[in-house]
């Protein structure tokens, strides 16, 4: 099997987020492989171990983005493509999908995995749009993946429960981090990843012009960043259980009036 995993490098959102004058402050932030993409890599590696597969990573990003690719390679992926061009900085979902469409043109694969969303934008559109552009069937928010009789068996977390779908090959699947617990790259894996092939791809290689990408980017544009309105800490109630419950009931009925 041939599996592609589309990856993104994102700021580590577990850290304190700093915003100044409407701009996101990237200095001092650690950049990591998007957690949802790490789950894609993990799942692809599990399938590789089970059935045999070649796992290829694709990332659009600047020079620093290579580190995220190397993390995926260190986990065990076979090779990687690094799509990089000054015109491709800070792409939105729609533009990213356009670039990836060009990348996948003429390539053979059994399926493409992408994270269900990126931890920085939380937009959740790129995977589905890419499948549309490639005219592939797709499913989002997968929490389980297997292959049976040349079909991909996908468990998807839906509104009413886990939906089980059989997808033909090729298809595109976006993965939730509830799918698995991505392995931590061993030091051996980290060292081995240096020797794995990582191919550099430019916009020209893709046969795409900066204008075509710009056209997608212009459909919507990011104006500024801010912090969410803070929710203030209310009353901390301490004491024995009786006191706690009595005080709470009093507050809920008389003050908040929600009971």
């Amino acid at each position: 099997m041939k599996i592609y995993v589309c990856c993104k490098q994102v700021p580590d959102v577990a850290m304190t987020i700093q915003i100044k004058d409407g701009k996101f402050i990237s200095e001092g932030m650690n950049y990591v492989l998007n957690a949802y993409d790490a789950s894609c890599v993990e799942e692809a590696l599990v399938l590789k171990e089970k059935y045999g597969a070649e796992v290829t990573l694709v990332l659009i990003g600047d020079e620093a983005g290579k580190e995220a690719l190397r993390k995926g390679l260190a986990m065990g992926a076979d090779n990687a493509f690094h799509i990089s061009d000054p015109a491709l900085n800070n792409l939105g979902s729609q533009a990213a999908a356009k670039v990836l469409q060009a990348f996948f043109k003429g390539r053979d694969f059994d399926f493409i995995l992408t994270g269900k969303q990126a931890q920085d934008s939380d937009m959740g559109l790129a995977g589905g749009i890419l499948s549309g552009l490639l005219n592939l069937p797709y499913v989002t928010n997968a929490v389980g993946l297997d292959v049976q009789d040349k079909m991909i068996v996908v468990k998807r977390q839906g509104d009413e429960g886990v939906e089980v779908l059989h997808m033909p090959m090729p298809s595109l699947i976006t993965c939730s981090n509830d799918m698995n617990d991505p392995r931590i790259p061993s030091l051996k894996g980290i060292m081995a990843s240096k020797k794995k092939p990582m191919e550099q791809v430019s916009l020209t290689d893709l046969g795409l012009s900066a204008d075509e990408v710009l056209k997608e980017s212009q459909k919507s544009s990011l104006k500024s960043f801010g912090l969410p309105p803070a929710r203030k800490a209310g009353a901390k109630i301490e004491g024995d259980a009786q006191t706690l419950v009595a005080t709470l009931m009093e507050k809920l009925t008389k003050e908040a009036k929600v009971l």
Partner: peptide, 18 residues
Amino acid sequence: NQDQKLMQQSAREFAEKF
């Protein structure tokens, strides 16, 4: 360098998780 950054990530993940 990249090796060291990746090492740091692995060590941190291990430390936080286990």
